[in-house]
Simulated assay, not measured.
Amino acid sequence: MATPSSSSRGWTSNITSIAACVYFFLIILQIPIFRVPCRAGMCLTPIHVTSSQLIASEIFPVAAVKALLYPGAIVNGLLTNRTVPSWENLLSTYNLTSIKEASAVTDLQRLEVLAGSYFSVAGALVGILRPGRMSMFGTLLILWGLIKEGILGKPVNTDPTKVVYVYPTMLIAVLCAFSAVKYDVKKAMRNSPARPIAKPMPSSSKAKLR
């Protein structure tokens, strides 16, 4: 018969795995969670932001970036016009063909969104095998970058067509990112070092009474 502690750990593990899977599909299938100016124009997903940087910096092969974009492109193509996008024209679909000539100032002004997108994509991929804190860290960075621009007005945006917008799906991303973090309270308490018991000094009054 399962003990309450083991059943609690199993329930927590299931919640963590489900949250990691939901976060994975939310990122990989490119469900819009924000709208922010980027080197490719207007980016709606962390993968779009990440891909524009990877293509511009030539860190990863173009085929690897296309493989990252293709699952979401297929879903978007089937939902919009019921067609599967072409592998050869994938970069033009995301406005990434001339990304190297685009100005990097837009992304440099939003470093939190850029760094958070990297962590979110990496966390979604790694989280399927081993859920961790990378997704949570990336989501919080994106959220802070969007809040900073929306509330504090940094950087200043005078173009109404490039207004930053947060979709309701951001709430799902935040909840899944936090729920995917596995934390064992009992293990943490067991691994914490025991506090040493303070002993009175030999010259103290307590030592003399002994």
Rank of each mutant, 00 (worst) to 15 (best):
M42C: 06
C43N: 01
C43G: 02
C43Q: 03
T45P: 08
P46G: 01
P46C: 07
P46F: 03
H48K: 11
V49W: 01
S51F: 03
S52Y: 00
Q53G: 05
I55T: 06
S57R: 14
E58M: 14
E58N: 15
I59V: 15
F60R: 12
P61K: 13
V62A: 09
V62K: 13
A63E: 05
A64N: 09
K66M: 15
L69P: 01
L69D: 00
Y70F: 15
G72W: 01
A73P: 05
A73S: 14
I74E: 02
I74M: 11
V75Y: 08
N76E: 05
G77M: 08
L78E: 06
L78H: 07
T80V: 14
T80K: 13
T80L: 13
T80I: 11
N81K: 12
N81D: 05
N81S: 10
T83E: 07
V84F: 08
V84L: 08
P85G: 07
P85R: 03
P85M: 06
S86N: 08
W87N: 06
E88Q: 13
T93A: 12
Y94M: 04
L96C: 03
S98Y: 06
I99W: 03
E101W: 13
E101C: 12
A102I: 01
A102N: 08
S103R: 10
A104R: 09
V105E: 06
V105I: 10
V105F: 11
L108Y: 10
L108K: 13
Q109G: 15
Q109H: 14
Q109F: 14
R110L: 13
L111D: 08
V113M: 08
V113T: 09
L114F: 07
S117V: 04
S117L: 05
S120Y: 02
S120D: 04
S120K: 02
V121F: 04
A122L: 07
A122C: 09
A124W: 02
A124T: 06
V126K: 08
V126G: 02
I128P: 02
I128V: 14
L129E: 00
R130G: 07
R130N: 10
P131E: 00
P131V: 10
P131R: 03
P131H: 08
G132I: 01
R133T: 09
R133E: 00
R133K: 14
M134F: 06
M136I: 10
M136H: 05
G138A: 09
G138I: 03
G138D: 01
T139Y: 04
L140V: 15
L141T: 02
I142H: 01
I142N: 08
